[in-house]
Write a protein that binds this DNA or RNA. Structure first.
Lengths: 200, 200, 200, 200
DNA sequence: GATGAATGAGTGTTCATTCAT
DNA sequence: CATGAATGAACACTCATTCAT
């Protein structure tokens, strides 16, 4: 008997990621995904219950790759600002290497497949980062506002910038990323005059 | 594709807006839209060339309602900060009144139907607002950064906050909106110590 | 706008009757039925919710044709034995004219689609005939036994005989039918010696 | 298609019997049968050439169990009427013990898988019983009619009664079975007035 | 012999679109 | 202009069968 092949599982996730970001959810058929993954349509259903389950699995895989990238930079020995800067840099680097990751994440999370359950799962996986922010608030470094606001100004802009969609391009070179992060930091930091050099 | 009955045209746009935000693009069939709008599927094709054209028309309608809301607050006689604050407040008000507007905008703009052409059209419609920002940069009020960055920190967060999606709710009362706007302003403003009271 | 076409509805029922009796339920695809009926697969779904509903509708149509044939012979002015004889003759005639009718009836009624609800419906349609039998029992003409037994000996044998399946052929000519009916009558009749000539 | 493990062979037949009577032929997949039998789909093909062969084998197994039950009661030392009565009683007992047997028999024999070849095989297996009837005809006990008619009134009603399908239940207790058999006997017997007490 | 992953043709069903009325 | 019946290609999914292990 053949063993279940992890290569096939990954090939299906990768094919889904590619095709959905190229053509969109509705234009991507199960048959196309199977062909691109090099398996037959029937095989797809050994690894995934149905098309919806495949999309969700792909989303979870994408989320984990992004979240692992971010969490890999959380290091309690560094000051908060430096931790966050490294998270930013790491995410821009992964966006350069695999532009589809953020694209798929955004497509899925704005689709009708997105659920609160999935949102909560990701939030829990991000707990170390969110805890670092909470600690920053307790230390008076971060504005004492709700998590929704911190997310909106710290993380959301990343999604906008890495897709650099449309008319106003953003070139993610080292200097640009530093400037972008400085703006994020200004938004969330409880500032003292001395810190103003962040924009110098 | 003559347009005789404007009621029917609007009913179709409204039905599309409702159904797509409820069920998603792929789960929304032309027949469902027609039924919700109170017309027959055949009639739909008198007003719209095909399903794609209907989705794009709905998107343009949604964009115009949001853009008009924003532009309605641009008033050269006010200082830039106040203009932007009014834009923020107006957008939150419209989000409360018609939550589907932002939801549809985000769903569509992250879908495969979004094109650079559409993005550019919206940018041109937003010209007065973008021009006000450019003037602010010339006056040394706004950080001298590219438009992508200003968008990312001034407008993107609004989309995040009005959907208040998921675990971290954002209650858009007057105080919360002011605080949120203060963060946006801190992100983009070229600050002097005196302005620090924005977070007080 | 086109009107719903009763010819199409009937053509679908007839095509189903033909194909199922020729090939069986599982070997008969929806596409085959549609082609035989001269419509497209999609059209089938305008007239029937799904394949199951089409099969049930065909069954009901078949039942009604058989039941109407039988009930057409019920005439209170005739003695019971003559009424039943006419029912028998009429059913054999319809079996000769449309052999598929009994074949489909039996195939369906022994399949997993058969339900008590359908059985009850047919029983209610047959009420006049069953009532005549009950009256016969009150008059001492028919053995005072349950309906299941009367059915088993009066009607079930018809199904067996009209299909004349297999090795022991039954030629439904006038004399044979009369003999067969005599046997059915002997089974259910509360007999007196005088009636013995029924087998003469 | 070697047979090594007779347990597996029997488990497959039993699983087929159960699933087909529960769900019908088309709803019963090879994978379901294998799972119910506790083997893998591949193993099934060691014991049976394909699905059709499995169904036919199950049918033959069911036929043999029913035919053996009937033939076990044929005893030339008894008068014909008593022989037939014992056949009836035995078949009702097996129907009570294994209701699926008659159900499967009827489902299969009304399906498109039924062939004249199978019918003939069963007929040959039933030869002793049919021969007893022929002998009865020669002795003037049984009406001198074709085998089709004798089958229709002697055996067909059993199938109807043991399934007791639908609205008119038949309780197969000893008295009811005797009454039912009396009706069958009346149908086929060449009667003399003296025998009338059968309905007393 | 036994397994179950793999296959791909085939299924029932949907749906954007057309067109006779 | 308006209708909704009709279409048929395309879809997601199943399943009898094979075969590498």
């Amino acid at each position: 008997m053949r063993q279940r092949d992890d290569n096939k599982r990954l090939a299906l996730l990768e094919a889904t990621l590619e095709l959905v970001t190229e053509q969109g959810f509705s234009a991507t058929s199960v048959a196309m995904i199977a062909r691109r993954a090099g398996v037959s349509p029937g095989t797809l259903y050994i690894y995934h219950e149905d098309k919806d389950a495949l999309l969700v699995s792909t989303f979870l895989d994408v989320c984990d790759r992004l979240i692992d990238t971010a969490l890999g930079q959380v290091d309690e020995h560094l000051v908060l600002r430096e931790q966050l800067r490294r998270v930013w840099v790491a995410l821009f680097e992964v966006a350069l290497a695999s532009p589809r990751l953020f694209r798929f994440y955004d497509m899925f999370s704005h689709s009708a497949w997105m659920t609160d359950e999935l949102r909560e799962r990701n939030d829990q996986r991000l707990a170390p980062l969110l805890e670092a922010l909470a600690e920053g608030q307790r230390q008076g470094l971060i504005k004492p506002v709700g998590l929704a606001l911190l997310e909106a100004f710290l993380f959301r802009p990343i999604h906008h910038l890495v897709q650099s969609s449309g008319c106003h391009p953003f070139e993610p070179d080292s200097a640009s990323i530093d400037m972008a992060f400085a703006m994020a930091w200004d938004a969330v930091a409880l500032k003292h005059c001395a810190s103003q050099e962040s924009v110098s």
